[in-house]
């Protein structure tokens, strides 16, 4: 068991649905894989794709993006914008030589603690199968980034992915 690859995953949640789903998973004592570290934003529409690249370049092996279900967004339709950016981001990742499966979008309402827990565990397993990302260690157009420490990760801080 100790040899098993343990991925590090950064998860983005929206304040109204998915963060509350995570809260509900907690209050309901549902167990899920501990590899995910969450960041709260007001809305999945707040997710700047560069955040995802920042996380991947900073050492995350995968990024989980979560938001309200389509039609249920607390800001009416901003999760659709998140969806649009997510689809584009996956194409960009592919172009960079990174498996697009390392980024996943999951809808979870405030009542879906169980879904949040199971989707998280599932995603951890998916990333475990993909193996470590080793950003900067593999060759590719962005290999100039260097090691995985944040100091050298300036290249991706610029906004290269349009909304």
């Amino acid at each position: 068991m100790t040899d098993q690859f343990e991925p590090t995953i950064v998860g983005f949640t929206c304040n109204w649905c998915s963060y509350r789903a995570a809260d509900l998973a907690g209050t309901s004592r549902m167990k899920y894989a501990p590899n995910v570290r969450l960041i709260r934003m007001m809305c999945s529409g707040r997710l700047d794709p560069t955040f995802v690249l920042r996380a991947l370049s900073g050492g995350a092996d995968g990024v989980l993006i979560t938001g309200c279900h389509p039609g249920d967004c607390h800001y009416m339709e901003q999760n659709y914008k998140a969806l649009r950016r997510y689809l584009l981001l996956r194409r960009v990742l592919k172009g960079m030589g990174i498996e697009p499966e390392r980024v996943k979008l999951v809808w979870a309402s405030a009542a879906e603690g169980a879904r949040f827990a199971s989707e998280t565990t599932l995603f951890v397993e998916e990333i475990r199968k993909l193996g470590p990302l080793n950003w900067g260690k593999t060759s590719g157009p962005f290999s100039v980034v260097g090691d995985q420490t944040t100091e050298n990760a300036t290249l991706i801080t610029e906004k290269e992915v349009p909304a």
């Binding site: 950064v10 501990p34 590899n35 707040r46 050492g59």
Partner: peptide, 24 residues
């Protein structure tokens, strides 16, 4: 409240290099 600087800093902090990946 949720500026780029705050979120990017939080990403970096969560991935602080002293902390090895964790898992069950």
């Amino acid at each position: 409240g949720f500026s780029d600087e705050q979120i990017i800093a939080q990403i970096d902090g969560l991935l602080f290099r002293n902390l090895a990946p964790i898992g069950a």
